[in-house]
Simulated scan of single mutants.
Amino acid sequence: MATARIKKGDQVIILSGKDKGKTGTVTVAMPKADKVIVGGVNVATRHRKPSQADPQGGLEKIEAPLHVSKVAHVTADGKATRVRFETRDGKKVRVAVKTGETISG
């Protein structure tokens, strides 16, 4: 399995689907499933029956996972970029392909 190019806390842009062009921060990364959850993006509505835990019930909005191939890192100018790995000062770091800047995290 390859090293994760997108991690929790990264700023990403959506490349395809109904939310194409939206940006957000990765809140959950699931590297084994190759999925991420991005805040405020890919929101699904679930109809919930009232229960003892939630006596009100009603509509519940849930952020659904996206495949990592549908998201890309955002550069400082707001454009999508791929990520590559380089060794700098003896450490393996993530680097933006378009700008060459090091991605923290």
Rank of each mutant, 00 (worst) to 15 (best):
R82Q: 15
K32I: 03
G17W: 10
T102K: 14
D77P: 13
T45I: 09
T23I: 02
T23M: 05
K91F: 08
T45F: 03
Q56G: 03
D77Q: 15
E86D: 09
T102S: 07
K61F: 15
P55E: 02
K8H: 05
R5Y: 13
E101V: 11
H67N: 14
K98Q: 10
I37L: 06
A76M: 04
M1Q: 12
G78R: 05
D34W: 14
E101P: 08
V83F: 03
P50S: 03
M30W: 12
L66F: 10
A76P: 08
A53F: 14
A72V: 09
T87D: 05
V36L: 08
V95N: 09
Q56M: 09
K7P: 02
F85V: 08
D19A: 01
S104E: 13
E86S: 05
S51E: 01
G39T: 01
K91A: 04
P65T: 01
G105M: 02
D19H: 10
L66P: 09
V68R: 14
K49E: 00
D77N: 14
N42P: 05
S51P: 06
I37V: 15
K35R: 14
V43G: 04
K49S: 01
G17T: 09
A53Y: 14
A33P: 03
Q56I: 11
L66G: 09
K35P: 07
T27E: 12
V43H: 03
S69Q: 08
A44L: 11
G39M: 00
D19Y: 09
K61S: 08
T3N: 13
I13V: 13
A64Y: 12
T102Y: 10
H73G: 10
K32Y: 07
E60K: 01
T25E: 08
G57T: 01
I103M: 05
K92G: 00
M1L: 11
E101I: 11
A53W: 13
T81G: 04
I62A: 01
V43Y: 02
K7W: 05
K92S: 06
H73L: 15
G40A: 01
K32F: 06
T45D: 07
K49G: 00
K32R: 11
T99H: 00
R94K: 11
E63D: 15
G78W: 04
R82I: 08
H47P: 00
K8Q: 15
Q11C: 07
T102H: 10
K18F: 09
A29N: 11
V74Q: 07
K61E: 11
K18Y: 10
R82M: 12
A96R: 14
T23W: 02
A76S: 11
V83A: 01
G100S: 03
T81R: 10
V38E: 06
T81V: 09
P65Q: 00
V95T: 10
K32A: 09
D54A: 05
V38K: 08
K61N: 10
S16E: 14
P31E: 00
M30A: 06
I37D: 04
K32T: 06
K7D: 03
I14C: 15
K20E: 05
